[in-house]
C-alpha cells in the first residue's frame, strides 16, 4: 500500500500536485476504521509528520488552529478554553479518550460527516478554513465548505491547513450540547452549538450550528433571521420551530428518527435561548 510521509508542507503540497488521488490521512481515526482502508489501489498521504500544521495561536483575527491539532490539545488549550469554550467542549466529547489523542480537527472536518461533533461549533463561531495547495492558499468561510453529503469544496490538490476562528463578542453566550446514544463514545443524534450576544432588538451575534439534522453540518440561517427579526422578545416556540424546520432536513436512520431529531433540536434551541426568556414556561436553567 503506497504511503507517503513528507516532513515539510511544501513537500506534501508538491506530492499532492503530482498525485491528486492521494488520500490525506492525519490521526487516521476515521480513515482506518473504514473496512476498505487497505483496499488495492489506495494511496495515502500521511500529514502526521508535517511541521507547522499543529497548534493554536492568537492572531489579530482570532485563534488560528492548525489542522493537525488533536482533540486532546484543543480540549485543554488555555486559549481555546478562554475564548472558544464551546469548541473545547465539543473536542472533549469527540470519540473516546484514546481517539482524542490522535484525532485532529482537520480530520473531523474533512471526514465531512453530518454527525461530526466539532463542525456545528465552528459554524456557530463563524470560522473560516485555509485550503493550501502548491499554487497557493485560499480562505473559505466554513459555512460554504460542505457542499453535500460527505462532499466538500476541497480540490484534489488541496489540503486543509488551518482553521481561523474569530473572537466572539465579549459576554457572548456559548452553548454546545451533543445528544448522543450514550454518555461517551457516541455518534450524535443531534448536536447544537450556539453563539449568542446582545438582546432582542439589538443582537450582536446569533449563530446556530447543527449536526445530524441534514446531509451536512449546517448553519441555521432561517432560525437566526427569525430571532434577529423579532424586535422585542425571543420569538414564540412555534415560530422558532417553523424557522428551524426550514433549516434542517432531518431523516430516519440507524441511530434515530427524524421526529426525535426535530423535537430535540428545537428543545436544544430553546435551552440555548433560555437566558433571554423573560417568561413562558421554559425553565431549564443553563
Amino acid at each position: 500500500m503506497p504511503w507517503y510521509a513528507p516532513r515539510h508542507l511544501e513537500e506534501a503540497l508538491a506530492l499532492l500536485a503530482e498525485r491528486p488521488g492521494l488520500i490525506p490521512i492525519a490521526g487516521g481515526t476515521d480513515v482506518m476504521v473504514d473496512g476498505n482502508a487497505g483496499a488495492a489501489g489506495r494511496e495515502y498521504l500521511s500529514l502526521a509528520g508535517v511541521a507547522n500544521l499543529r497548534g493554536v495561536s492568537e492572531t489579530p483575527l482570532g485563534l488560528a488552529i492548525g489542522a493537525l491539532t488533536t482533540m486532546t490539545e484543543i480540549g485543554r488549550h488555555p486559549l481555546v478554553c478562554r475564548h472558544l469554550p464551546a469548541l473545547a467542549a465539543s473536542a472533549r466529547v469527540t470519540g473516546a479518550v484514546a481517539i482524542q489523542n490522535r484525532a485532529t480537527l482537520g480530520g473531523n472536518i474533512m471526514n465531512a460527516s453530518p454527525a461530526a461533533d466539532n463542525p456545528p461549533v465552528l459554524l456557530a463561531y463563524g470560522a473560516s478554513v485555509v485550503l493550501m495547495s502548491a499554487m497557493g492558499s485560499r480562505h473559505v468561510p466554513y459555512a460554504q465548505f460542505h457542499s453535500g453529503y460527505k462532499e466538500t469544496i476541497r480540490r484534489p490538490t488541496e489540503i486543509l491547513g488551518e482553521v481561523i476562528v474569530p473572537f466572539p463578542p465579549d459576554h457572548a453566550h456559548h452553548y454546545f450540547r451533543k445528544v448522543g446514544t450514550r454518555r461517551a463514545q457516541a455518534i450524535s443524534k443531534v448536536g447544537l452549538a450556539a453563539v449568542l450576544a446582545g438582546r432582542p432588538g439589538s443582537w450582536e451575534c446569533v449563530r446556530f450550528g447543527l449536526a445530524s439534522v441534514a446531509a451536512t453540518p449546517i448553519l441555521a440561517c432561517a432560525l437566526a433571521a427569525a430571532i434577529t427579526g423579532s424586535d422585542h422578545s425571543v420569538p414564540r416556540d412555534e415560530e422558532l420551530a417553523e424557522a428551524l424546520g426550514r433549516d434542517i432536513a432531518a431523516r430516519d436512520d440507524i441511530r434515530s428518527t427524524a421526529d426525535y431529531r426535530r423535537r430535540v433540536a428545537i428543545n436544544l434551541v430553546r435551552e440555548a435561548l433560555a437566558p433571554w426568556r423573560s417568561q413562558g414556561g421554559f425553565d431549564a436553567s443553563h
Partner: peptide
C-alpha cells in the same frame, strides 16, 4: 440484525 456494528448497537459505557 441491521445495526451489526459496535458503533450502532449501543451498550452502556462506564460513563453510563
Amino acid at each position: 440484525m441491521a445495526n451489526n456494528r459496535v458503533t450502532n448497537y449501543i451498550i452502556p459505557t462506564s460513563a453510563d
